[in-house]
Amino acid sequence: MIKVLFFAGVKEQIGQDFIELDDRGWTVGQLKHHLLEKYPQASESLANVMVSVNEEFADDGTKLHENDQVAIIPPVSGG
């Protein structure tokens, strides 16, 4: 399984802290596309997110693997 974590506004729009998906050999870009289709209510937010894989920022070409922990990271506002 691949665990996908949601935070902040994206979490509220999707209504879940995380989901688990079967490993389908996807890239980060393919996962984002899947989320956009599955959660149209969050499409505007999802268009502006970064993605981390196992706690490191990853680009759309990064390949996902079994047991990866992915996080959908809206624009940050700490400090």
Binding site: F7, A8, G9, V76, S77, G79
Partner: peptide, 14 residues
């Protein structure tokens, strides 16, 4: 440090 926090640390403010 504070500028980098605002760029790369996954923290969100509501």
């Amino acid at each position: 440090a504070i500028e980098r926090i605002k760029d790369i640390v996954p923290i969100w403010k509501k």
